[in-house]
Design a protein around this nucleic acid. Structure first.
Lengths: 208, 208
DNA sequence: GATGATCTGAAACGATCAGTCCAGAAATCA
DNA sequence: TGATTTCTGGACTGATCGTTTCAGATCATC
């Protein structure tokens, strides 16, 4: 732990957000979005605390100087990575629901419980667990993410009246997220699938 | 991160386990079990990585020397703390189920979702999220813990034939654990309670 | 070619980390 | 009393941490 004056401090300066107009000078030789994506994957794999600046610069292919000139500091990059992850994740989940062949709810639960990230689970759930209790910004991003997931579930359950099934949507969401712990602990995938299917069958058969 | 040669290495030396026979010399002036308990709470609050030796010794009321003489190193203490937590937690959950006035399953879900640890959630779920993918020992302790929870649920659902309702027990367990993420993200308690109640009602009404 | 922005790589900063070691005080037993 | 063990507290090691700074190379515009 270093003197990072609480990651929750407001008004962090993010240099790269003031896009400079094309003019004289050497142009940026790396793709900022691609670098952000790479950083996200590192945070995803190792968590915030365990990710070092060397890990980041190595994965992003940047020198330390460019890193700080572009992203300000580790925490702001981290928050941007979280936002990026959330946007991507929600968009992806929406697509899963829309392109599902028969049961969109089932497809969403599958996608949440067995994410493309593999055993890394969901970056935001990881971060909520690791940091949210001590960091308001992370908590808020996490809350928004969970809320968006619930909204998608509600829409999938009853497109005509999603507000009425909000609690059930929340239950689906929580259940899928809960199975991530099983997966990370090494419980075999088929057992998790059975758990999910069982719950889905029961919840589906009910109209409550 | 330091050179901790992977926490998963086997055969870690734990000095305190060779209990010394009462003989000459100054007797130990602190309660090892109480110190372990204190350490557990620190890990619970901050996680493994973010907990420093100073945090530990301060909370445990030990000098650095006594700490290392008694517990060997941070990792072994940590693993002992996890075991201690799991035993306590399972015993407590069992008691909750046994002393529940009407619905033991409901009482268990409440206890899991709103643990005595408050916003810290469940220590083992936290550790699974933070460390299990990179640490076999943590993963194994976590897996055992989750399994024990499921067993308790199964016994509460159908004491006569718990094996038959294992999947449903797993669903209850995962759901309760999933709501911990909501809690940590700062979702209001009453909304979480509604989610839980909704799922419980539905799952209860079914015999599947 | 000059200017200016960005690049690189490396060095250095102060701080914190886990873990070791030591000297002296304190407390028990023979 | 003497032997033995644990106590405390602080100094120390070697490493890593996030961050800053700098000199020199590079590449675009004027």
């Amino acid at each position: 732990m270093v003197h990072i004056k609480s990651m929750s401090d407001n008004a962090v300066h993010i240099p790269s957000l003031e896009k400079r107009t094309a003019g004289p000078g050497r142009p940026r030789s790396f793709d900022e979005a691609a670098a952000l994506e790479s950083a996200m994957h590192v945070f995803w794999q190792k968590g915030f605390e365990a990710t070092s600046l060397d890990d980041l610069t190595k994965a992003m292919g940047l020198s330390r100087s460019s890193f700080y000139a572009t992203f300000g500091c580790k925490q702001t990059l981290f928050l941007r990575a979280l936002e990026h992850y959330s946007e991507n994740g929600i968009r992806g989940l929406k697509e899963v629901a829309e392109t599902a062949e028969d049961d969109p709810v089932d497809a969403m639960m599958q996608a949440l419980s067995d994410p493309k990230g593999g055993p890394r689970g969901c970056l935001l759930v990881n971060c909520i667990t690791e940091l949210a209790p001590h960091d308001d910004k992370v908590a808020e991003i996490g809350r928004r993410h969970l809320e968006n997931i619930e909204t998608l579930f509600a829409a999938a359950i009853d497109p005509a009246n999603p507000d009425a099934v909000r609690d059930r949507a929340s239950a689906y969401s929580s259940l899928a997220i809960g199975t991530l712990a099983l997966r990370k602990a090494g419980v075999p995938a088929d057992r998790i699938a059975r758990t999910l299917k069982q719950a889905r069958t029961v919840l589906m058969s009910s109209t409550a």
